[in-house]
Structures are given as C-alpha cells and as structure tokens.
C-alpha cells in the first residue's frame, strides 16, 4: 500500500503535469518571469534614458532589486478606504493577478508541451483576455474614489477599442492555417512565419495588444499625470504588487500569443538534436521570441508619450478595425489565388 502511494507520488512528481504546473508555464516560470522582466525593464529603460537603473541590491547590476521590492510590499499594511466596498476591493487584485495566468494554459511551448491541448486554443486565450478588464472596473468602482472610477471607466472604452481589432486581425492567421488549434497554427508556419504573409494583420494585432496590456503609449487607465494612478490609486502593499504582477503576466501572455501567431511559435532549429531534447529546444525558441517581443515593448515605452482616450478610440474604431477587415479580405484573395501559401 505504502509502495503504491509512493509510486503514485513519484509518478506525479516526474510526470509532465507536475512539470507544467510548477515549471513551464507554471509557478516557477511566471514567478521568475515577473522578477526578471521587471528588473530588465527598469534596466533597459534606464539605459534608454541615459541612467544606470538598479545598481546595488544583489551585487550584479541590482538583479535582486525586484525581489527586495516584492518583500517590502509583502510587509506593508494595506489600508482600504473607509467607504470602499471591501469584498471587491480585496478580491479584484487577487483575480487580476491570477486570471491572466490561465491564458498561458493555451499556449503551446512545444508540439506536445501544452497544458490544455484543445482544438480551439486561440479562442480560449481570447476568452481569458476578455475576462481581465472586468476586474479593474470592479476595483475602480469598489474603491469609491473619483480617480479610480474614471480609471475604471477608461478601461471599458480602451478594451472595447482594442479587443475587436485583436480578434479580427487574428482571423487571417486562422484562415491561412485553417485551424483554431494553436499547435496547427504554429506547424503551418514551418515554411514562412505569418508575419511575412500578414504584415498588416501583425501590425494591427501588435498595436491592439499594446492597448490590451495597457502599456505606453496606451497606459491611459493609469495615467499618472491626470488620474494619480488610475484604478490602482487606493491600493498599497501586496495588493498593489498583485496588480503589477497581473500586468506583467498579461504582458507575458500577450507576447507569447504574438510569437505563436506570427513569429513561428516554438519552431526553430535544434542545434544538437541528439543532445538536447526537442521539447527543450522548442521552449527555448518560444521564450527567446517572447524576450524579443518584451524588449520591443519596453523600448516603445521609452519612445512615445501617452495618447488620449479619444485618440485611442479613433485609432481603434477608425483605423485598426477597418485595417483588420482589409487584412481579412486580402488573406481571402491570397488563399483563393495562391492556395499553396497556407499550411492547411
């Protein structure tokens, strides 16, 4: 009996599910990713601004600065506003941090390494992305503060303007590969990455992605100069840390989705086929592509001012949605006249 239980535990510890839960894309990955990417963002942005960035904590280039900040946030008291709706106030950041991690379950890290293999993987990712904006709205309303309320209202507008082109632009990819299954989409790119066949769609997807993850130039809901800190104004301590965590997980999910749809996902040559398992090589490739995406997003933060909400709406409704539709039509024509381009 003991032996059986032991075998069960050992079997679980060495199984793929355990590795997926605790390593990629599980706890270790999201934890390390946020710690490193926050440090990397501060460091790279500092170099763009001709500064040093974190320098002292952790001996080498301040690499432990994020960890120190997280610890500091953990030990801080969080004070809810007196007239706040407490349940919403406490729960919104918790869910804001945890919901985007679900999007990672749909992303294939190798042909077989996928937490929830499904024929509609892309739709699952979109469903999760569509869920996240509700939480800031709840938070903004629950804080009972004018700044947070305006921040929450802005999120509604921003997400409606950003999500539709995000969905429409991916339609071209689906048509080319003939599947909603992300593994099939990646495999369809074995000849050309879709960014080469769909530059317009990739651009629209990229811009609306920035709007969805609320980064500069579309960090309108948290505009510091107008709204103090938007819907997060009242949060302190680890609740604030969780909102930041959720933001960076959204960033990771967005970059992974972009790499999967347009940059060939996990596809890439394995330098030592006998030596390195093909799963690891695939993971390394998709993580590398994600790192490039994150770098681009960070440099964009250093190169542009923030737009206004009406300008974002103009951009979304008058430019991105028509462009996404044009892209769909162009893809149809492409498939009709050159049927060999698609992977299907």
């Amino acid at each position: 009996m003991m032996q059986q239980i032991w075998d069960l535990i050992l079997g679980f510890l060495t199984s793929k599910y355990f590795l997926q839960l605790f390593f990629i894309p599980g706890i270790a990955f999201i934890g390390l990713f946020t710690l490193i990417v926050v440090w990397f963002e501060r460091k790279l942005l500092a170099r763009v601004m001709l500064r040093y960035g974190p320098l002292h904590v952790g001996r080498v280039a301040g690499i432990l600065q994020t960890l120190a900040d997280t610890l500091k946030l953990l030990f801080k008291e969080f004070i809810p506003p007196r007239k706040a709706y407490k349940l919403g106030f406490y729960l919104a950041p918790v869910f804001y941090a945890s919901v985007p991690t679900l999007a990672l379950t749909a992303i294939p890290f190798s042909p077989t390494w996928i937490v929830y293999p499904s024929d509609v993987g892309l739709l699952i990712a979109y469903a999760v992305i569509a869920c996240t904006p509700i939480l800031p709205i709840i938070a903004g309303w629950a804080c009972n503060n004018r700044y947070t309320m305006i921040g929450g209202l802005r999120i509604i507008f921003q997400d409606v303007a950003g999500e539709i082109p995000l969905l429409l632009s991916a339609l071209g990819v689906v048509m080319l590969s003939g599947s909603f299954n992300l593994v099939n989409i990646v495999n369809a790119q074995s000849r050309y990455w879709f960014i080469l066949l769909q530059p317009l769609g990739a651009l629209v997807f990229f811009i609306s992605l920035i709007a969805m993850v609320e980064r500069v130039p579309f960090d309108i809901p948290t505009a510091e100069q107008e709204l103090v800190f938007g819907w997060r104004t009242e949060y302190g301590g680890i609740l604030f840390g969780l909102t930041m965590f959720g933001e960076y997980i959204s960033l990771a999910a967005g970059s992974l989705l972009f790499s999967t749809l347009y940059l060939g996902g996990y596809l890439g040559p394995n330098p030592f086929p006998g030596f390195i398992p093909s799963d690891f090589a695939s993971m390394a490739w998709i993580l590398l592509k994600m790192a490039v995406m994150v770098t681009v997003l960070i440099v964009i933060r250093g190169a542009y001012p923030r737009l206004r909400i009406d300008q974002l709406l103009n951009l979304g409704w008058k430019w991105l949605i028509p462009l996404a539709m044009i892209n769909t039509v162009l893809t149809m024509l492409m498939i009709y006249f050159f049927p060999w381009v698609g992977g299907a």
Binding site: L45, V48, M49, L50, R51, V216, P217, D219, A223, E224, Q225, G302, A303, Y304, P305, R306
Partner: peptide, 11 residues
C-alpha cells in the same frame, strides 16, 4: 513628463 514621456524628461 506630463505627457508620460519619461525618456525626454531624463534627456
């Protein structure tokens, strides 16, 4: 800085 463009603030 008020337009959220911190790079130019530093430069």
């Amino acid at each position: 800085a008020v337009t959220g463009f911190y790079t130019i603030l530093m430069w």
